[in-house]
């Protein structure tokens, strides 16, 4: 995450037509990695995550004049990335006739995925996470892997801190049940 001064400077340059492109190039370098991991943990496949990350930056670039710095730059980018990811998952579920409460189909071929080198435990954890409903999965990934603050998550997801805490607690309980059963 950027510090406040650096972010203000970048936003100022984004609003200047002559400096906008250069500033946005810096934004791509700064945010491509955290946004990629956020998307990747949801869609699992590297190729899909790569496409969605490109779409996220293209959407942000084409809407840059509407970003006036009221929200944090990172919040704005995360929101676009999450919307892109959710739209993609909805289309995939429709294509594969799957329910929103179980994205197990995403990890079905994870073992043979060339871009996954986790051990058996990590694979089991990914299976457990994929069994969570979409929103809980998103919250669990943000909190558990990225250790994101609830306040930041609240801004990105538009959900109260209390609801996020409850949702994370439920996600952890479900993962525990998953491991007891398996």
């Amino acid at each position: 995450m950027l510090n406040k001064e650096k972010e203000e400077e970048l936003v100022k340059r984004l609003q200047n037509p002559k400096e906008c492109r250069q500033a946005f190039t810096e934004i791509i370098s700064l945010y491509s990695e955290p946004l990629y991991w956020q998307i990747r943990k949801m869609v699992v496949s590297h190729d899909d995550a790569n496409d969605l990350l490109q779409n996220t930056f293209l959407k942000a670039w084409s809407n840059i004049e509407y970003f006036r710095g009221e929200a944090k730059l990172s919040t704005w980018l995360y929101k676009i990335a999450i919307n892109e990811t959710i739209s993609f998952l909805n289309k995939e579920r429709q294509r594969q006739n799957e329910s929103i409460d179980d994205d197990a189909f995403l990890v079905a071929s994870l073992e043979s995925d060339e871009w996954f080198d986790g051990d058996e435990l990590q694979l089991e954890l990914q299976r457990a996470i994929a069994s969570l409903p979409e929103k809980q999965r998103l919250i669990f990934n943000m909190k558990y892997f990225d250790d994101m603050k609830y306040e930041d998550m609240s801004e990105i997801l538009g959900t109260s801190v209390g609801a996020l805490k409850a949702s994370y607690h439920h996600a952890v309980k479900k993962i525990e049940t998953f491991f007891k059963r398996n």
Partner: peptide, 14 residues
């Protein structure tokens, strides 16, 4: 239970 896992997801990139 979660402490048995590392915070690494196991995913990698080229």
């Amino acid at each position: 239970i979660l402490s048995r896992f590392s915070k690494e997801s196991g995913y990698k990139v080229p």
